[in-house]
Design a protein around this nucleic acid. Structure first.
Length: 528
RNA sequence: GCCCUCGUAGUCCAAUGGAUAGAAUGUCUCCCUCCGAAGGAGAAGGUGCAGGUUCGAUUCCUGCCGAGGGCACCA
């Protein structure tokens, strides 16, 4: 049982009726943990929060096991601050040594969940926004897995349909075989592909769909390389839209909708009553020309996922798909997902010399995700995106990114790890002697220990609210605490017991950092 | 017009309704005979505007200002 759990248990005993007790790590207060429960009790009982806090502090100390609290005190307008004895706090380190690579893993999720992300049309290179969603989905999947869920990371490939047809025609137009059109893809990559396959293009110019599919296959291959080999984003499955159609899943979804009474016909088209789920209008499934819409294909895709046994689906989309959220959530409900979440990542605004640079994939004017990764490296690109909340509209300057890549915070975190490993290499991994752990009693020791023990909570919170950037921030905090510890406390010259205890702490730090890197998909370098 | 997201140090970003709003970067001052200085100590610098809710608001509500995105029988 962690120290935090013990405090929780004590509070429940002395302050009954307070089910949702919040215990947090206060900033700049010196205390190890704190709670604001007195405020809630004060409201319920109509009493003064400071008086309640004082009573709680007294009772907590009395009903705690001997040697657990060093001090419990009421502070400010009604906070209760808990100071643990070094022995009580440091006992938590034993769990790190026991669990090692599994420290941080939990059981808060027991469901089978699919995370769908990127899913960009294979009609060209990936954008920065695709990359943002890519890292997010990759790490979120890792977090959920670590929290006990069965996870599948999926890329849904729109390898047929209108966009692919447009791609085929764009390629023909690139060689001047058909007149150019406004809607065509005009990037250099289209021209290049057309030139390289000119014989094939000429032969297939009357079959633009087949031509588009052929090119899409190549582009998908490039995407897979960029995402997997270069950026280290791992997908478990690439699901083909074409295969969804071939399996008649859209039709089966339609049948299901009809059976549930969610469908009606109007003006010759077939509609789904998405307004029943909060959408502002109903949506067309089959057009008056008897053509299935993309939406219906997507419904087929959701159905397919459900049929493969998933309880939950998380779909990470770009901001241009915001209007799509309500209807896809309606589908998720009808096909029977227990949980369905859509995460919208915000745009990345590209800046050049302080001026906004408008990107257009269609016009081929944009910085590709691959450019960024090869320019600054996978670790830097990852951390760059992962330390920022997905709802932030970030400004991105490639020049600045290059300049700052050398000073990227990821190096700070990795350096802490390198340093820890360096110490262990030099000293030899110390013997972990449990009874010496209580000797770690300086402010720096204690801060570092507490931070290490927060790791499982960080993972659990992230599995709950998907705020993945919390992990990157945690890495920075932990690295800082370690660097301060390193600067202030010595190891080698100390007496045997304290040396062993400090080495154990260094080793624990290395373990937690390593586990963190694994979740974030960042490398754990032994040298820099 | 309606809907969504965002507005926080010079800059780029944090902050489950909590205490003195944190890092990084940039600027300034110190610290390498000492476990790796890609480090540490310190200084200056910030919540768009106006109300409201309450013990307490960057966070919740209303209005305004500003930025981005979405509002097809397209995908």
């Amino acid at each position: 049982m962690s120290a935090k759990d013990t405090i929780l248990k004590i509070l429940k005993k002395i302050a009954p009726g307070s089910d949702e007790v919040d215990i947090y790590v206060p900033e700049n207060q010196g205390a190890h943990y704190a709670t604001n429960i007195a405020f809630r009790l004060a409201k319920e009982q109509g009493k003064n929060p400071a008086a309640i806090a004082a009573a709680l502090a007294r009772d907590a100390k009395e009903s705690a096991p001997a040697g657990f609290f060093a001090k419990v005190e009421a502070a400010g307008p009604g906070f209760v601050n808990f100071y643990l004895t070094p022995a009580a706090l440091n006992a938590g380190l034993l769990l790190i040594f026991k669990e090692k690579g599994k420290f941080g893993a939990g059981k808060s999720r027991k469901d089978k969940v699919q995370v769908e992300f990127v899913s960009a049309n294979p009609t060209g290179p990936l954008t920065l926004a695709n990359g943002r969603g890519g890292f997010l989905g990759d790490v979120l999947g890792n977090v959920l897995k670590l929290s006990g869920a069965k996870v599948e990371k999926e890329y849904y490939v729109n390898d047929t349909g209108h966009q692919v047809l447009t791609l085929g025609r764009s390629i023909a137009a690139a060689l001047g075989l058909i007149p150019d059109e406004e809607a065509f893809y005009k990037g250099d990559y289209v021209k290049e592909w057309a030139r390289r396959h000119s014989a094939l293009v000429k032969k297939m110019q009357n079959k633009p769909m087949a031509l588009g599919e052929r090119a899409a296959k190549d582009f998908l291959g490039l995407i897979k390389t960029a995402v997997g080999k270069k950026a280290g984003i791992k997908f478990d499955r690439f699901t083909s839209e074409k295969a969804i159609h071939a399996a008649k899943l859209p039709q089966r979804a339609l049948q299901l909708f009809r059976k549930g009474g969610w469908v009606y016909e109007s003006e010759g088209a077939v509609w789904l009553k998405t307004t029943a789920f909060g959408d502002d209008k109903d949506r067309v499934l089959v057009t008056s020309e008897k053509l299935p819409t993309y939406f219906l294909a997507d419904a087929g895709h959701y159905l397919e996922t459900k049929k493969r046994g998933f309880d939950a689906k998380i779909n990470i989309l770009g901001p241009d798909h915001y209007g799509y959220v309500k209807r896809i959530q309606a589908v998720a409900k009808i096909v029977g997902f227990k949980r369905s979440e859509v995460v919208i990542t915000q745009v990345i605004r590209l800046m050049k010399n302080g001026q906004e640079f408008k990107m257009s994939k269609r016009k081929g004017e944009f910085v590709t995700f691959e450019d960024l990764v090869s320019e600054v490296g996978a670790d830097v690109a990852r951390f760059f995106f992962l330390m920022i909340s997905p709802t932030t509209h970030m400004d991105f300057d490639m020049g600045l990114a290059k300049e700052r890549s050398a000073k990227n915070p990821v190096y700070y975190v990795q350096y802490a790890y390198v340093r820890a490993k360096g110490i262990l290499r030099k000293a030899g991994a110390g013997k972990m002697v449990p009874k010496t752990l209580a000797l770690l009693d300086t402010a720096e020791d204690q801060r570092l220990v507490r931070q290490l023990l927060e790791f499982p909570s960080v993972i659990e919170a992230t599995a709950r609210d998907y705020q993945v950037h919390r992990l990157a921030r945690y890495g920075l905090d932990l690295a800082k605490d370690f660097q301060q510890f390193y600067e202030k406390e010595h190891i080698m010259g100390e007496a045997k017991d304290i040396k062993n205890a400090r080495l154990a702490l260094v080793q624990a730090t290395a373990i937690v950092l390593q586990n963190l890197f694994a979740v974030l998909g960042i490398s754990a370098p032994s040298k820099m």
